[in-house]
């Protein structure tokens, strides 16, 4: 559960209250994974219950200030030194959708792939626009660690979208190859080169 560890890691910088924690989190990650302040306070309450943070009283405006305990510091250190688990890949709706699309009769898999590729490309264009015009593109981005962090998060989204498009291209190419082989088997003797994809699509 990364919100928990992220908040603990932020508190290593110094004691803070809930709103400050949320602001610091979003400064580093943009609003990619928005945190609501309720979630922040619930998480803080659990961390306090588990002895990883403790309240240190309130400021003038009545905000409860939290600081990390020794056990909390150990937990942060363990988080940073343990790789994120890859043993259970997160559920991927697109991969599941495509796995079903190729097996369930009557689904136009080509249209599924094309529709997704257009949508992912549009997202990739948005990320790129943010990269070239947003905070990450400002001259200060090289020196402010929070801006650098956000720019790296943006790069992560860019690479993920790019990988998804490459995978969709790959799926499409393989499906077309399979369709071509089936046609060869069905009609031996006919040269596959003489036909074109429109004919194939029409037959499908």
């Amino acid at each position: 559960m990364s919100v928990r560890q992220a908040l603990l890691a932020l508190l290593e910088q110094g004691p803070m209250y809930g709103y400050q924690l949320r602001a610091e989190f979003e400064r580093r990650t943009g609003s990619t994974w928005p945190l609501n302040v309720g979630q922040v306070y619930t998480t803080l309450a659990r961390l306090e219950r588990d002895g990883l943070v403790e309240g240190t009283g309130t400021d003038d405006e009545g905000h409860v200030i939290y600081r990390v305990t020794e056990a909390g510091e150990d937990e942060v250190a363990a988080w940073f030194t343990t790789p994120v688990s890859r043993s259970h890949p997160p559920r991927d709706e697109l991969a599941i959708k495509l796995a079903l699309a190729v097996t369930v009769p009557g689904v136009d898999v080509g249209a599924v792939i094309q529709g997704q590729r257009t949508a992912t490309m549009a997202a990739l264009q948005d990320y790129t626009r943010l990269k070239r015009t947003g905070r990450a593109a400002l001259p200060g981005a090289a020196t402010d660690p929070a801006d650098l962090a956000w720019s790296l998060v943006l790069d992560s989204l860019v690479f993920a979208a790019e990988a998804e498009i490459r995978w969709l291209d790959h799926c499409e190419a393989r499906l077309r190859r399979v369709a071509a082989t089936r046609d060869d088997v069905r009609r031996p003797g006919e040269a596959p080169a003489a036909e074109n994809a429109t004919d194939k699509a029409a037959r499908r």
Binding site: M121, T128, V158, A161, E162
Partner: peptide, 10 residues
């Protein structure tokens, strides 16, 4: 795709 994303239209 990463390069095409610099365009207004793809």
């Amino acid at each position: 795709a990463r390069h095409a994303a610099w365009a207004d239209r793809v």
